[in-house]
Every structure is written in structure tokens, then in C-alpha cells.
């Protein structure tokens, strides 16, 4: 079976949808955790702010995933963002 243009197109669309939906959630989640843990000295205010910002982060990530030129770029940026945010949070929390 040949891999047709249609197959490729379906693959790219499906992948972008998954990256946007699942990857976007993780970026939003880690962004919110980072804000919640480290934005202000006041923990409760930070957590509420983080939670409320999560949806904006999710929105921007989804728009980016579909606007960017290649699927590979979408995947790479989302993955790197997740990793960055996660380790930034871990680093800022200090030794525990």
C-alpha cells in the first residue's frame, strides 16, 4: 500500500489535534503549577491566579499548534515548553 497524500494529511491533522488537546493541557497545567508555586509570596493568591490563567495558556498553545508551519515544530515547541516549565518549577522550589 502506498502512502498517499491523503494519508499524510490525515496523519498531520490527527497529530496536531492530539498535540493541541493533550500537549496543550500539559503546558497549561505546568504553567499553572509554576504560577501557583512561585508567582507571589502569597500561595493562595498564586494558586487562584495560576488556575485562572491555565485556560489562556491552553488557548494560546492550541492556536499556536494549528498556526505553526510544520507538525514537527508544533510537537517540538509543546514538548520543550512542557519540559522547561516542569524543570523550572522543580528548580525554583529548591531542594526538598
Amino acid at each position: 500500500m502506498n502512502i498517499t497524500k491523503k494519508h499524510l494529511s490525515v496523519f498531520h491533522v490527527t497529530t496536531r489535534v492530539l498535540i493541541a488537546l493533550i500537549g496543550g493541557y500539559f503546558v497549561a497545567m505546568h504553567g499553572a503549577i509554576l504560577i501557583g508555586n512561585h508567582l507571589l509570596s502569597d500561595k493562595t493568591n498564586s494558586i487562584i491566579t495560576g488556575l485562572m490563567s491555565s485556560f489562556i495558556i491552553y488557548l494560546i498553545t492550541v492556536l499556536f499548534v494549528f498556526a505553526t508551519k510544520t507538525t514537527l515544530r508544533a510537537f517540538a515547541v509543546v514538548l520543550v515548553s512542557c519540559i522547561l516549565l516542569y524543570f523550572l518549577n522543580y528548580y525554583l522550589q529548591g531542594p526538598q
Partner: peptide
């Protein structure tokens, strides 16, 4: 509407921060 349910949709954030 999204933020009214944020404690549930982003419950993992509460787990990790609180």
C-alpha cells in the same frame, strides 16, 4: 464558565501546589 469549574478541570494543579 471555565473558571467556575477550574478546581476540577485542573485538579492536578491543586495537587501539585497545595
Amino acid at each position: 464558565g471555565l473558571i467556575l469549574l477550574m478546581g476540577i478541570s485542573f485538579a492536578p494543579v491543586v495537587d501539585a501546589t497545595y
